[in-house]
């Protein structure tokens, strides 16, 4: 297994407060790593540490198999990033900003600038000063800047901020294409679960500076697939019947009127028939796929998830 980026027990302290605590993160080559957490959870600080802008108080960072030190410059050539907010020289045009970026990165092929501007839909306004750009346009230009030097690792901090729904879809397709066609490894942070869920291969969940979960989406989908949700007229009686007479133990009360049954091997019609046989009336019953959103929400809130 080749890891492009790893953090080993990384901690960052500001004025005695730990904003990132003992994070061990493993980003594999070619994957899209979704980094999930509320605002202020420590996502940006960790990303800043990966780009060497902020130095860890403790722990180690490995990029492309090498330990990151304050004097690691060569690895920066292999990375592209948009962290926090896409900052530019506002008085210069979008084109000039990308041109300067290529010069500083030591990237000679300027033809790519045109292609990149076209890909992010900014070709027609590329000669306008960046100060005239909206947040969405800046975001797209930021992604173009990060991509123009064809990096092996792309770090994007909340890239969908400011994008309209069409822009979000375009970005999602672009990121998937980058990963599938060019084998670029992506670290994408977001506080919007739906976005991460749709593109990520692996998800890392950070809460209060701690990485509380790092799991492949495939595994989560396997673990949290289906359940039966029912609304009986008498929840207590239904629970009693299920537990003592039907032998179902893996269920959960959701609110005051709903029960979710996670035991495999029983269909809604069988469960319905069994409950009715024991005089439990059912208002509704149906099979549902477990919402990943719910799973992550619980993790982020600190409820430990449903398993």
């Amino acid at each position: 297994m080749t890891y492009i980026a790893r953090t080993i027990g990384v901690t960052k302290t500001y004025g005695g407060t730990e904003v990132v605590s003992d994070v061990c993160m493993n980003i594999r080559q070619g994957e899209i790593y979704g980094f999930l957490g509320h605002n202020g959870a420590g996502k940006t600080t960790l990303m800043r540490m990966l780009t060497n802008l902020v130095k860890p108080t403790a722990g180690e960072i490995e990029l492309f198999g090498e330990k990151l030190t304050p004097h690691s410059y060569e690895v920066l050539k292999r990375m592209g990033s948009v962290i926090d907010y896409p900052f530019f020289y506002d008085g210069l045009s979008a084109w000039d900003n990308l041109d300067l970026h290529c010069e500083y990165m030591g990237f000679p092929d300027k033809k790519v600038i045109g292609t990149m501007m076209e890909q992010v839909g900014l070709k027609d306004i590329g000669r306008n000063p960046v100060r005239e750009f909206s947040l969405g346009m800046r975001q797209r230009l930021g992604i173009a800047r990060a991509l123009v030097t064809t990096p092996e690792l792309l770090i994007l901090d909340e890239p969908i901020n400011g994008l309209d729904p069409a822009g979000i879809k375009e970005l999602r397709d672009l990121l998937k294409r980058l990963s599938a066609e060019y084998r670029i490894t992506l670290l994408v942070s977001s506080h919007i679960l739906g976005e991460i869920e749709q593109i990520a291969d692996t998800v890392g969940v950070i809460r209060g500076g701690r990485l509380i979960e790092e799991v492949s989406m495939e595994r989560i989908r396997g673990q949290h697939n289906e359940y039966i949700e029912l609304r009986p007229t008498d929840v207590r009686k239904a629970a009693y019947v299920m537990e003592h007479l039907l032998g179902l133990r893996n269920y959960k009360l959701v609110g005051e009127h709903t029960i979710r049954v996670y035991d495999p091997g029983m269909s809604p019609s069988e469960l319905n028939a069994s409950l009715v046989r024991h005089d439990v009336a059912i208002e509704s019953i149906f099979k549902r796929a477990h919402s990943l959103e719910e799973y992550f929400m619980n993790l982020m809130k600190g409820d430990g998830g449903i398993a």
């Binding site: 802008l53 410059y73 060569e74 920066l76 050539k77 926090d84 506002d90 990165m105």
Partner: peptide
Amino acid sequence: RNKTMGVLFTYPIK
């Protein structure tokens, strides 16, 4: 202040 220094410092230059 405009945070472009942060961009500058992500370049492979001392």
